Computed example of a mutant assay.
Amino acid sequence: MQPKPENERTPVAEGSLDSSALPKGYPTKVWTQDDGTALVATGQEGGCSKVHAEVAEQTPQLVKLVLVEETPEPPGICTMDLRYPPVAVRLDAPLDARKVVLEQRDVKVPR
């Protein structure tokens, strides 16, 4: 799923977003698209790592979105850059007034 142009996005309001579990400095830009059925967040990856999003929980009150950064193990030669790609997930129902809870997890994956 690809992010839509700015004019087709609906930002998630600050009051509807809990990013307290993210590391300091992690991006917190989140929006919906496709009539609220897709949730998109700005991830963070660098060097050899890649980021993707997973829905950990969906209730009538909240959606918990985990930003998973996968790093190859053993690490190879990697650049020292940071990238901030948008990552998207499909929701079971439109987000509407539900709160979005962001979390981040690092995972080692075989090379």
Rank of each mutant, 00 (worst) to 15 (best):
M1V: 11
Q2P: 15
P3S: 11
K4M: 15
T10N: 10
V12T: 12
G15F: 10
S20L: 11
A21Q: 14
A21I: 09
P23S: 13
G25I: 00
G25P: 10
V30F: 02
T32K: 03
T32V: 06
D34I: 03
T37E: 06
A38C: 12
T42F: 06
T42H: 05
Q44L: 11
Q44C: 03
Q44V: 08
Q44D: 05
E45Y: 11
E45F: 04
G47D: 06
G47P: 06
C48P: 07
H52W: 06
H52V: 01
H52E: 08
A53N: 07
E54R: 09
V55A: 06
A56I: 08
A56W: 00
E57R: 12
Q58R: 06
T59M: 05
Q61S: 15
L67Y: 13
L67E: 11
V68H: 10
E70G: 13
T71Y: 11
P75A: 11
P75N: 13
G76P: 09
Y84C: 03
Y84K: 07
Y84E: 03
V87E: 06
A93R: 10
A93W: 01
A97F: 04
A97W: 02
R98G: 05
R98K: 08
V101Q: 10
E103V: 06
Q104I: 03
Q104S: 13
V107H: 02
